[in-house]
Amino acid sequence: MSVELWLPALARFEPDHPLRRLLARADRLDDGPQGYLAALAGWFGAPEPLPAGALTRELATGDADDALWLCADPAWVEPDMNGARLLACGQMQLAIADAMALAEPLVPLFEEQGMRLELTSPDRWHLRLSPGTVVPAFPAPEQALGENLLMHLPQGAEGRRWRILQNEIQVLLHQHPLNARRRAAGQPPVNSLWLWGAGQLPATVTTSLRGVVSDDPLLRALAARAGIAHRLRTPVSGANPASPAAAIPAQAGEPAAHWLIDLQDLPAQAIATAWWPMVDTLARQRPLRLSFASGERWACRPWPRWRVWRRVRA
């Protein structure tokens, strides 16, 4: 089995990117799933929709138990002529003191609804819901980023409670003095919470992978629940631009087959520089499968890399 690289959408790679040259000497496979959640579902057998709240809470604190959880990620929403758009979610660069200050007026609001707000980390918050709470289908952030929020709010009578709650959250955060200071400092405001990923911790998660290397909390949470290894990516070092390769098990003398290396959140330029020495080395030594966020997949074996007569057609 090959090592699998999870990469950004193919369209992000310019024609002169070194990865394009690698594709020219690889074999095209059938397309795989498109998008973040679909790709995760393809690698892991877990309930759908994925109970991201319970999984990520369990990874971080180990106390998900059998409770009902919901992600409540700090977010930036910007009004426009047609409503409002979600511009950022879950990566707001909050210090713990700022996160606690923003959460303070929200705690009683959620308590009135029978919910408990938990600051799992400054940028990742969770709601613990009362047993039996009916939760409508909420889209994941990737499905709503950049789009009109009216298209993604829960509809109908069962969604009314959540629409009112969402509006009250935005009012409280919009008025928070911390957001005025963030805007003055050139930082985006944290003026909303994105609710998604409802559910309980699944009893079992299955996968054919042996391990993952990733910074993504949900991917690592799925790996942990499936009982396989999960490692954080090694940060890029200025003195050693190839330092991320140290995170790959083969570098530590362990077999790397069946491992998934998550690069899908990185800029194409970062892959061309800091990550390319690792990718090139792996491609010379062992079979690779390249899976793009846009669905395209290629198989690359060490011997086909001598197919120098192929034109770069990827």
Rank of each mutant, 00 (worst) to 15 (best):
130 S>C: 11
73 D>V: 08
140 A>N: 02
123 D>I: 08
140 A>F: 05
136 P>N: 03
86 L>C: 04
74 P>W: 02
103 A>W: 08
122 P>M: 10
106 L>R: 01
81 M>F: 15
81 M>I: 15
141 P>A: 05
107 V>E: 07
105 P>Y: 13
110 F>R: 01
130 S>E: 15
96 I>F: 13
112 E>M: 14
131 P>S: 12
79 P>E: 09
82 N>C: 11
112 E>H: 08
72 A>L: 12
116 R>Y: 05
135 V>G: 03
123 D>Q: 10
99 A>M: 05
72 A>E: 07
81 M>A: 15
89 C>S: 08
110 F>G: 00
84 A>M: 02
108 P>M: 11
136 P>C: 03
138 F>N: 00
88 A>H: 01
109 L>A: 04
72 A>F: 08
104 E>D: 14
96 I>E: 15
136 P>D: 01
120 T>W: 12
141 P>T: 06
94 L>V: 05
98 D>M: 11
115 M>P: 02
90 G>H: 05
138 F>K: 00
72 A>D: 11
117 L>T: 06
113 Q>V: 15
85 R>M: 02
101 A>M: 12
93 Q>W: 12
113 Q>L: 13
109 L>Q: 03
94 L>H: 04
142 E>D: 15
84 A>T: 00
132 G>E: 06
131 P>R: 06
120 T>G: 15
97 A>F: 13
82 N>A: 13
121 S>K: 13
121 S>W: 10
96 I>N: 14
101 A>F: 09
86 L>K: 01
108 P>Q: 07
123 D>S: 08
72 A>H: 06
104 E>G: 12
117 L>K: 06
108 P>F: 06
107 V>K: 01
76 W>D: 03
88 A>N: 07
141 P>C: 04
94 L>M: 07
87 L>Q: 13
81 M>E: 15
114 G>D: 09
86 L>Q: 00
124 R>H: 15
107 V>R: 07
135 V>D: 03
77 V>G: 00
87 L>H: 07
127 L>A: 10
131 P>C: 11
83 G>R: 04
121 S>H: 13
103 A>L: 08
73 D>L: 10
133 T>I: 07
142 E>Y: 06
72 A>Q: 07
117 L>R: 09
82 N>S: 13
117 L>E: 09
83 G>V: 03
142 E>V: 09
74 P>E: 00
97 A>P: 03
103 A>V: 10
80 D>S: 11
